[in-house]
Design a protein around this nucleic acid. Structure first.
Lengths: 240, 240
DNA sequence: ACGGACATTTGATCTGGATCAAATCGCGAG
DNA sequence: CTCGCGATTTGATCCAGATCAAATGTCCGT
């Protein structure tokens, strides 16, 4: 706890953790009332601003967290600066790499977010004592693995247009306000971040976005706000 | 068991499963003597020929397996035929997607291989009864997730030459016979498969391979046999 | 050893997306 | 409201890797 507090002290405002006790999140949903109380005593709810780092690539981290609100991006950067986003996480996902101290990727808030932070030691102990929790984290790991592999197909074999359409579909799928045929959502990522997620350049992302707009597949209400009049049309652009 | 036997009966020769009882594999290493005996009674050791499919994309599968020998590739194909290999698995990896009936990818033997097949029902029950096993599979899922994300960086941000070097490094790292500075290994994949793993074409793979050869980074003793005189030189080509 | 089918390499050309270069937009500070 | 700056779009050109097209090479069956 103390470590987590100090490590995160630069960015965001700490507030008391109540949501964990309300059984949000991948972690807390799997715990007994007693464990929940113990975890709650050692946890910390934090607001993190868009762009601020939660875990640094290559760094040891002594805490895990649960996303309560907002979007977190997982990045890998190469020594020469090339960068790839390898995953997006939404509430109530768990952030952290169980069983390994050093992180091979960085986690950053893509939007303003709230996370619930708890000490690694404590959670590691709870994992080994609680098959339910192990199972819950195993489930998330498998879901992330499926998502990562789906994205590998996107990165390796799809065209720029298909890539951008895939991203919009991913966001639309994980954003809430949607009706049967029409969906509108805010992009949690800048053009540069979209490029880093798709293995493209910002220019190409921008061009493909206007292409989809001119093709009537999307409306760009605002740089960050997209409307998809017909989800099927978007899916057709993905070809799978 | 019966189901697994019938589903796999087309390809390969069934032989009695002894290795599981010898505690090979991600699964068997986590089981009690009693469970091992039960699993052994319902398992089946099989030889599978290179190229034969173990699980089909989109199909329901009622069995899991453990790789005893050889290399298995995990593929995704798009309706139009574009294909991406999303993972390679080596002995003693576990093959299958716990908790989900339908597979979103196909698993194929890349080389001649031996696998140990067991019924999904039985193993699912054992997983829920055996935290050790859950943990072991969770570990493998996390390892695969790390590998998948590393490969996302390769697919999204590396050049063709870096991609090919990355593949050689991956194979070298997972093959056995290596000394301090020199490594030789057989490629478990054809040029077409390498292309599908790297998101390239066969021509580009071939060209980059001869480029690495002309640059003195590798020797191609044979289409399928590579020698890396100095591993550091290879790693330099990957730039990370 | 020989033929044939497929795998791999090599060559010539084309092109989707990168790179370089300007506009234009949008937003926060004053 | 206006200025200034970073984000985004748009335009012009370039180039890494794709595509098209031949040679080899390799392995297998006869």
């Amino acid at each position: 706890m103390d470590v987590a507090r100090s490590e995160l002290s630069e960015a965001g405002t700490p507030v008391a953790c109540r949501s964990c006790q309300a059984r949000h999140g991948v972690v807390c949903g799997a715990l007994s009332r007693h464990q929940l109380r113990e975890l709650g005593r050692h946890s910390l709810r934090r607001k993190v601003d868009a762009g601020s780092q939660i875990v640094a690539q290559g760094a040891e981290s002594s805490f895990y967290s649960n996303i309560m609100r907002g979007v977190v991006k997982l990045c890998k950067v190469m020594p020469d600066g090339r960068q790839q986003i390898v995953g997006l996480q939404f509430a109530p996902d768990f952030v952290g790499r169980p069983f390994v101290r050093e992180s091979t990727l960085s986690a950053e808030a893509a939007t303003d977010a709230e996370i619930c932070v708890f000490p690694r030691n404590l959670l590691d102990r709870m994992i080994s004592e609680t098959p339910e929790l192990q199972r819950s984290l195993h489930d998330q790991a498998l879901k992330e693995l499926d998502a990562a592999r789906e994205w590998m197909l996107t990165l390796g074999r799809r065209t720029a247009e298909e890539k951008v359409a895939s991203l919009l579909h991913l966001i639309a799928t994980h954003a809430e306000p949607q009706t049967a045929t029409s969906t509108a959502f805010d992009l949690p990522l800048s053009r540069a971040e979209i490029a880093d997620f798709l293995g493209l350049t910002i220019e190409t992302v921008s061009r493909q976005l206007t292409r989809l707009r001119k093709g009537g597949v999307i409306r760009i209400e605002n740089v960050r706000h997209i409307v998809v009049p017909d989800m099927d049309e978007l899916e057709k652009k993905i070809s799978a």
